[in-house]
Simulated assay, not measured.
Amino acid sequence: MEKLLTVSVAAYNGAATLQKALESCLVADESLQALLDVIIIDDGSTDGTAALAQAFVQAHPGSFRLVSKVNGGYGSTLNTAVELASGRYFRTLDCDDWFDTNALQTLLRRLQSCTADAVYTNYRTVQENGSGKAFDVCCKFDTNRVYAVGEVQQATPDLCMEMHALTLCTKTLRAAWRPMPEHCSYTDMGYTFVGMAAAQTICFVPVVLYQYRLGRDGQSVSMASYRAHTQDYIRVARILLDAAEPLAAQPAPAGRDLLLVQRARDVAQYLIELYLRFPPDRETGLALRRYDEMLCQTYPHIAAMMTNKNTRLLRAGRYLPYRTLSAWARGKQSNGGIL
């Protein structure tokens, strides 16, 4: 039987949370369950991850499979999953997150007749205390239509490009795939960018599918992790920037080109905001300056599009306002402000 959806579950020492993630891939409709291809990629775990995954494979051999490999980081799990995927569509699920199972069943029904290259669903962030926030990325669109990417960009210039919202056509993704770097954080940004750079059409399924856990120690989106893995962030950002700078150099980029340029700009600009939220010291200030100067020299067209207030003030003041802006940004962060 042809599989409809491959779910790539990257798992490194995830025994504490993996069961919930895998259970969320079990839908009530057995005919739809048979169309699921869940690849659990054990990325060199040293805990009980592989044994837990194998138990699911044995219980549901038609839907789950386990791939055990030497540790290579998240990018390597994406490389493996894209190569091995048997589903017509592809999406990811981190081993500490989960799906709303009813929403997954709805998505599977929609995918049966879907022709779009990219399929959007809503997602929800969930804090450790159980509180959450839903992100509706489908609200502006007719959910019975398939849109050209250019139409979508005109309707919402800030279209979400997070992995939590995206399901991609496997054939389209695989044809455009470039291997993600190993032992490198934030490669999910490269994965979604490559997928959307290849997509010609988009549709929207208005269910809150992905449940994204936040607030756990050690997460790559924690401020401590961002600071420890800044060079990883720059490495992945440059994948986006290398592809987007020639598009930004066009006289008037539009449609999908503009969508990709805006995504690369936002990823580049986000790191400046992160630098301002790190504890201020001379080394951080110099790193921020070197980073922005690299952007201006190597990606001048995208750098010129980075016009938020903090970036403008830093450049106008030759980075001398760094400590003042850092104090303001960290104060906003401690008061619940977001980037």
Rank of each mutant, 00 (worst) to 15 (best):
G130T: 04
D29Y: 00
A81D: 11
L108F: 09
L22V: 03
S8P: 02
G73P: 05
A50Q: 15
S45W: 10
L32I: 01
A51D: 14
R88Q: 15
V27I: 05
C95T: 13
D37N: 08
D42F: 09
L35R: 15
N71Y: 11
A34P: 03
F99C: 13
H60Q: 10
T106P: 02
R91H: 06
K20E: 13
R109N: 06
N122H: 09
A21T: 12
A16L: 12
Q105K: 03
Q127K: 10
L22P: 13
Q54T: 05
N71Q: 10
Y120L: 06
T106V: 15
Q19C: 03
T92C: 15
V7Y: 05
N122A: 09
C95Q: 07
E30I: 00
D96W: 12
A118S: 13
S113W: 00
T101I: 00
T46V: 12
N102P: 03
L93N: 09
G72F: 07
F90M: 03
A118T: 06
Q19S: 14
G132V: 00
A59M: 04
I41H: 13
A59S: 15
A11H: 04
V70G: 02
P61K: 08
P61H: 05
A103Y: 12
L93D: 12
T101K: 13
N122D: 15
A16K: 05
G44Y: 02
L18D: 02
A55L: 04
K3I: 09
A53P: 11
N79T: 05
R91D: 08
H60P: 04
R124K: 13
D97T: 08
S131I: 07
V126I: 15
S63A: 14
L5T: 09
K20M: 03
T80Q: 08
V70I: 05
L108V: 03
G48S: 08
H60W: 09
L84H: 08
A11I: 03
Y74Q: 10
Q19R: 15
N102S: 14
T80N: 00
L32K: 06
N129P: 07
L84F: 06
L111T: 10
E83P: 06
A51N: 13
D42T: 09
H60F: 12
S8V: 00
A21N: 08
T101M: 01
T106D: 10
A15D: 13
V70S: 02
S131E: 12
L93R: 11
R91G: 06
Q105A: 14
Q54N: 14
T17Q: 09
V119D: 00
Y12T: 00
I40H: 01
L35P: 08
K3L: 02
F90N: 04
A15Q: 13
L35H: 05
D43P: 12
A16V: 01
D96C: 05
S76Q: 15
A11G: 04
Y120Q: 08
A50S: 15
